[in-house]
Amino acid sequence: MSTTSTKPVAATDENKEGLSQGQIVRRRFLGNTAAVISLVVFALILLIAYSSSGMFGLPGWWKYTHNGVNDLVNGGRPTLQLFPLSLGEHPFGQDRLGRDTFAQTMRGVQISVAVMFLIGLVGGTIGVVVGALSGYFRGWIEAVLMRLTDVVIVIPLIIIAAVMGQVAGRAVGADVQPYFLGLFVGAVVWTGLARLVRAEFLSLREREFVDAARIAGASSARIIFKHILPNAVGVIIVSVTLSMSAAILLETSLSYIGMGVKAPDVSLGLLISQNQEAFQTRPWLFWWPGMFIVAICLCINFIGDGLRDAFDPRQKKFNAKRAKAAAVSAHSETGTTSTTGV
């Protein structure tokens, strides 16, 4: 209920204070409870995952490694207790070899998130470049790039990703395979973004400020990077965020059909597909990584949703009654119409 009342106030503030776009976006985003909670949760997950098992060669605070074989404690069942709170030897339990599920899950989060960011980064970069070039220059560049996009787009994602995963799995050694998977899959998921960015560029390049810049003698590169891209950044960020949540699920699906991350390394998708038979008998092997997938995916979706609302002023709070009232009053006092129709 609180958001309902504060929202319109914030909207008028923005207009009064003359805030920069970044400030407006930040403020709107922070006003979105679900998105902020998600951001905090996601940061916490990353913090725990990266600090527990270490990163960049630094040791972590957790005593077990994801592939170390240990004695079975308590038949492999989780030792995590809530009342009183105690972690025990293996808070998330162990698999049949005695590997620590907590360490595996954390390692899985690291790998899955890394794959996800790689897919987002690679896909985002290619998408922006292709979209920007074809939208700005038009002509034969657009024709070539867009046909290329069409070529990639007609291949269903899971098909091309599976083939790519298979190729990545054979091409390189086990230790870098997940990253290659990310790169390869990233190289085929940019098509949607490219279309979006192109559309955005097509409309922005006709705007007055671009003409002004051009007349002032700005180079194409400068116009693209300084003038158009900042205006399209909202669309890009939102689209990339949402494609990352799809990416983590794609990784899960690929691992499920055996074409994603390969053992001995682990990813969340690989863990749950390896342990799907244990779903009912040793649920901890399945549920912990599963819960992290769902948690990460939910967080990213809500963050993405929050960003969309923050970047896109047309999506702001709409209230039938108030809109009607405003319309009626606008109708009666001619001249003070729409200040909000951005």
């Binding site: 949540s245 699920l249 749950i272 779903f279 995916c297 809500f302």
Partner: peptide
């Protein structure tokens, strides 16, 4: 979002 985030074979089981 929750349904979207659930791996489909999980839902299936």
């Amino acid at each position: 979002f929750l349904f979207f985030s659930l791996p489909v074979f999980w839902v299936a089981v």
